[in-house]
Amino acid sequence: MMRFHVKHLLALPTMLFLLVFVIFPTVYLWYLAFNKVTFVNIDHPVFCGIQNFIDALNPTIGLLKSLSFSFKFAFVAVAVQLTLGLLLALLFNREFKGKGVFLTLFLLPMLTSSAMFGVIGRLLFNAEIGTATYFINSIAKIFNMYILPLGKDWAFTTLIYLDTVNWTPFIFLFLYTDLRSLPKEYIEAAQIDGASGWAIFRHIIFPYLKPLLGILAVIRFADAFKTFDIIYTLTGGGPGDLTTSYSIKVYELVFVKGNFGLGAAASLLGFFILAIPLSLVIIYTRRRWSK
């Protein structure tokens, strides 16, 4: 009986923290979503039923467009970053001179602030003094092109590049550490049997990494879907609304236009549109792997 009390006492700090800073705010968010609340009447919300949710789905608000952008961004980011991360992990899966230094160098972008990556991108890709803009255009000149990396044709590509630099190290790190725990005997045995590099990858390494690849894909997809920082500091959602993601849209509704009720409803809709397919994927893959 004594033990029972102690263990619950120990669990109290996190429980209390979650109650005050997660459960209570979440309830309050739902409350806001069902009320007309703006900067003006922040103290006197007026109940309005599901009107905010109906308004949020109106195409003129732009929420739906931002959601489709976020899905597109997340798909491309995950595909590119998983591929590069896997290639890097395979490259590092052997001993060579200077490995430790290279490892540190490849990890640095992952622990650099995403928001600062947006600023770094502006310094690199602006039309006036951008070093990358200069080199890109020295090549583009051959093809009679002029490229504005942050203009409407290239902003998405530039954004994907910077996000990839920022987050591929994350994928790489996990795949690399997982590969190191793959028993070397498997690969050696296959080599003795005369298996080619590709066969070893297909039949030993890939099946071994597959569960982790799945988890990383889900985590990175969710993270990319809710991206705010790097987009806000790089393009601010522009040009126009071309790179306006779900989080940027909600930010605009709430903190630029001051419409808390509508923003709350929009944020919840976006969350469920992400969460429902994602949980289906998680449940499906768990079932398949546990068989």
Partner: peptide
């Protein structure tokens, strides 16, 4: 002591999937 069972741990990990923008709105007020 496995307090809260597997569910408790999963709930904390699931927090990762909540977009921070959700929390900014109530937090601001």
């Amino acid at each position: 002591y496995n307090v809260g069972g597997q569910g408790f741990m999963l709930q904390i990990i699931a927090l990762r999937f909540f977009p921070p923008i959700l929390f900014t709105i109530p937090f601001y007020i």
